[in-house]
Amino acid sequence: MLLGRFFMIVPALAIAGNLARKKSVPPSLGTFPVTTPTFVALLVSVILIVGALTFFPVLSLGPIVEHLLMYAGQTF
């Protein structure tokens, strides 16, 4: 639990440090603006897919199977 919560901060901080060291580039047509629906759609789907991929196996054994069983008439 502690590992799961805090261990992930280490690589996240490493990425942040790396980004902070990068030079900022003036925006042009070649850069990707972050204030558009495209970006939002992209970000949301990445979060959803990567998140789902990580937890789907466990979810399927937990809530999903319980949900299906509930409809089959079995509750815990």
Binding site: L53, T54, P57, V58, L61, G62, V65
Partner: peptide, 16 residues
């Protein structure tokens, strides 16, 4: 991440 996801699946599976 996927290695962890798969490795942790087995205990769940055994429980089920």
């Amino acid at each position: 991440i996927f290695l962890l996801a798969v490795a942790t699946l087995q205990p769940f599976a055994i429980y089920s």
